[in-house]
């Protein structure tokens, strides 16, 4: 679990660096949501439920940000397919799958 979180955090953080020039505000949203994963990494290993909580909420947040960005592009009729968009959508899709998978661990 922690390995996945680390991987996702690194991806999200590099996405933040990629986007900071062009879309500053959106980049900061990505940064903030990436902290959800980071703080999940800092959670103690003895408490797997909390780590899962971070994975689940982080996943949902990335799904939300990816979906809204996609809608925004769609509305302006300018779908972008550059690296940062691809990464964002990837993170969103993984996030959704991850959230659904982790969900089963909670009552």
């Amino acid at each position: 679990m922690k390995f996945l979180l680390l991987f996702e955090w690194l991806t999200a953080f590099s996405l933040f660096l990629l986007m900071i020039k062009g879309e500053t505000m959106l980049a900061f949203c990505v940064l903030i949501f990436s902290f959800i994963y980071l703080f999940g990494l800092l959670e103690s290993r003895k408490d797997p439920q909390r780590i899962r909580a971070h994975a689940m909420v982080g996943g949902i947040m990335f799904f939300v940000v990816a979906a809204l960005t996609f809608l925004n592009d769609l509305a302006r009729l300018e779908l972008k397919f550059n690296l940062s968009r691809a990464l964002l959508i990837l993170l969103g899709v993984i996030g959704l799958i991850q959230a659904r998978a982790v969900r089963k661990h909670f009552k």
Partner: peptide, 26 residues
Amino acid sequence: KELSMSEAIDHVLTHKFIGIPIFLAL
């Protein structure tokens, strides 16, 4: 009695450090 779904989500969304930033980002 286990960490319920709501408690888990709350743990992150009202987190001591990232609770407010998450709200602002949303």
